[in-house]
Simulated scan of single mutants.
Amino acid sequence: MARPDDDALSWDGDDDPTLAAAPAAAPLPTGYRAVGKGSAQLGESEQTDAADEAPLTAPSGPAPLGNAALVGIGVFAGVYMLLSLGWVLGAGRLQLVAQLFLDPVAYQVTMWLAVLAPPLWFATVWLLTRGSKVWLRLVLLAAGAVLLVPWPFVLSGASL
């Protein structure tokens, strides 16, 4: 008779002799390999059949990004949004001075090109470095953040 402490770890009928025969293991799908306890009991024919087939190829898509890379890219996305906002604020302060040197239409075109430059840089780096290493993507995003600093906003200060 089992001890009362072991009752919770057993089911009624565990000692049934008909349950002792292990069912035949289903063959593994192509490209899978059995590991762990009991993996040696798989039939040799199943393992040789898998070896005779064409070898597996690496996935064609890029590897998924890790947590640190996703956080880094999210931080850069926020920085680029702030850069665009800085260009809007800085260009608004220069509008009166710029009208002395530029046609108003030319000023509007250049202002909106400056405002759209950070999101365009981010999107370009994101699309062109899909298959590249994560560090290259982060370096290019950092370089763009330095190159696209809104100097009119930086030099005029934060006063409105």
Rank of each mutant, 00 (worst) to 15 (best):
G13F: 14
V109I: 11
A58R: 15
E46M: 09
L155Q: 05
G92I: 05
P4M: 08
G92C: 03
A69Y: 02
P150K: 03
L148Q: 06
Y80A: 11
W135P: 03
T57M: 15
A63Y: 10
V149K: 10
D12K: 04
M1N: 07
R130W: 13
P27D: 00
W135S: 05
S45V: 15
A123C: 10
M81T: 11
L65E: 06
G78D: 09
L65R: 01
S39E: 01
W87S: 00
V97A: 13
A2L: 11
V149F: 13
T48P: 00
G86Y: 08
T110P: 02
G144E: 08
W112I: 09
L155D: 07
A98W: 05
A63F: 12
L94D: 08
L155P: 09
L19D: 14
D14W: 13
E44W: 10
A143I: 05
L155G: 09
L9D: 01
D15S: 05
N67C: 14
Q47P: 04
L19H: 06
S132N: 02
V109M: 07
V115W: 01
L160P: 03
L116I: 12
S156V: 11
A91P: 00
W11A: 15
G78W: 08
R137N: 04
V154A: 11
L70E: 09
M81N: 04
Q108D: 10
D49N: 03
L138T: 00
P104L: 13
P29I: 02
G36T: 02
